[in-house]
Amino acid sequence: MAIEDEDGGGAAGQPGRLILTVYGLYARERGGWLPIAGLVRLLGEVGINVQAVRSAIHRLKRRGLVDAERRADAAGYALSDDAHGLLAEGDVRIFGHTRGAADDGWLLVVFSVPDTERAKRYQLRSMLTRLGFGTVSPGTWIAPRHLETATVETLQRAGLAGFTQVFAGPHVAGGELAELVASWWDLDGLQELYADFLDRFEPVGARWLAGGDGAVDDARAFVDLVDMLTAWRRLPYADPGLPLELLPAGWNGERAHELFATLSARLREPAARHVEALLGPAETLPAAG
């Protein structure tokens, strides 16, 4: 569920990201549609006001990710076919994050784009960055071998396959792999991203995972889950699952992945109860006409 949008900053500055998180978590089990009134109510709980929700949903509509649709006289927005596909693709990357091994091999994408197609060059670089590729040289990008299928499918879907050649194989010679990986990816930057995530959500995890029989606050679980998943979503793309043996000692990404998996599992059920309390059970929502 990793569709990126144009918003940035903290929670109040990224309503588009939060909307996509809510759609990814709850709309697909409801026919891909949510009523705008319900969406406004849910987003209000994570600090997004009505106008910001409406502005963000209109931007998503212009990008072809949602379509305005009425069901049983209720105004709402449905995920487009493209959005369904991108969310499903993101589920695999986010919730099934794969970490490669050094002997699995590597994927190389080589591209050459004529000056008359400069926009395609920018699109290619942006796409490879989002997939988590490192840069060997301006026209040669590298990733762990396990990204092969996702890369080929993404290139084809974007109409960019004709500008690229894709190779897969082992590293044979030419330097120490750990040193090369450190030159191809910004590992210090990745460590900082993981550190920010841990600083923000380890206290949340301590609160939810401490055990005990205290009352569960379903509304708080919803806010914490949406907030955490929105913050986490870009990390499995920035870190494409590089082999642990090639990363610096004490790589904090492992601790961050463990926290994300454990805390998301803890929060899902009470958060879903809260959404059902606000919107009603999924089967009671009006079906597409």
Score class of each variant (00 low, 15 high):
Leu79Cys: 13
Ser80Lys: 00
Ala119Thr: 12
Met127Gly: 01
Asp73Tyr: 11
Tyr77Glu: 04
Pro144Cys: 05
His84Gly: 11
Gly134His: 04
Asp104His: 09
Pro144Trp: 04
Leu107Asp: 05
Ala83Asn: 02
Leu86Gly: 07
Ala102Trp: 01
Arg93His: 06
Met127Tyr: 02
Ala158Cys: 07
His171Ser: 03
Ala119Tyr: 14
Phe95Glu: 13
Gly64Tyr: 15
Gln123Glu: 12
Val136Pro: 13
His146Ala: 12
Asp73Gly: 14
Arg59Cys: 14
Ala119Asn: 06
Gly90Phe: 08
Thr129Pro: 06
Val109Met: 02
Leu160Asp: 15
Tyr77Cys: 01
Gly159Trp: 09
His84Ala: 10
Leu147Asp: 14
Leu128Pro: 07
Thr154Gln: 10
Ala178Gly: 01
Leu160Ser: 08
Thr149Trp: 00
Arg125Trp: 05
Thr164Phe: 12
Gly96Asp: 14
Gly139Ile: 04
Tyr122Ala: 12
Thr98Leu: 07
Val66Lys: 01
Ala72Lys: 00
Phe133Glu: 12
His97Phe: 14
Glu176Tyr: 05
His171Arg: 00
Thr135Pro: 07
Trp106Met: 05
Ala150Val: 09
Arg93Ile: 15
Arg63Cys: 03
Val92Ala: 07
Thr140Met: 04
Ser80Ala: 06
Asp82Gly: 10
Pro144Tyr: 03
Ala119Val: 14
Leu147Thr: 07
Gly169Ala: 06
Asp115Val: 11
Arg125His: 08
Leu65Ile: 13
Ala101His: 05
Thr116Cys: 06
Gln156Trp: 08
Glu148Gln: 03
Ser126Trp: 05
Phe95Tyr: 15
Val113Gln: 00
Val172Glu: 11
Val136Glu: 05
Phe167Cys: 11
Gly175Val: 01
Asp104Leu: 03
Ala119Pro: 02
Gln156Ser: 13
Trp106Gly: 00
Leu177Val: 02
Met127Leu: 15
Glu153Tyr: 04
Arg121Gly: 10
Arg121Met: 09
Arg93Asp: 14
Thr164Leu: 04
Gly90Gln: 01
Asp82Glu: 14
Lys61Glu: 15
Leu131Ile: 03
Pro144Gly: 08
Ser137Tyr: 06
Lys120Thr: 14
Gly132Ser: 09
Ala74Ile: 06
Leu131Phe: 13
Leu86Ser: 09
Asp104Ala: 10
Ala83Gly: 03
Ala150Leu: 03
Gln123Trp: 06
Ala161Tyr: 07
Thr116Trp: 03
Pro170Phe: 00
Val109Tyr: 05
Val172Gly: 00
Ala158Trp: 06
Leu128Asn: 01
Asp82His: 08
Leu87Trp: 13
Phe163Glu: 13
Gly85Thr: 09
Thr140Leu: 07
Ala83Trp: 10
Gln156Ala: 13
Gly175Met: 02
Arg130Pro: 15
Leu60Arg: 05
Gln123Asp: 14
Val113Arg: 00
Gly162Asp: 12
His84Arg: 13
Leu108Glu: 08
Pro114Val: 04
Leu86His: 11
Glu89Val: 12
Pro170Asn: 08
Lys61Arg: 07
Thr140Asp: 03
Gly162Thr: 06
Gly85Asp: 13
Gly90Val: 08
Arg59Glu: 15
Ala150Glu: 15
Val152Phe: 02
Ile57Leu: 11
Ala83Ile: 09
Asp104Pro: 01
Thr154Lys: 00
Val92Asn: 00
Glu153His: 08
Glu89Trp: 07
Gly132Pro: 14
Arg99Lys: 00
Asp67Lys: 02
His58Glu: 15
Gly175Cys: 03
Tyr122Asp: 14
Glu176Val: 09
Ala88Gly: 12
Gln165Cys: 08
Val110Cys: 11
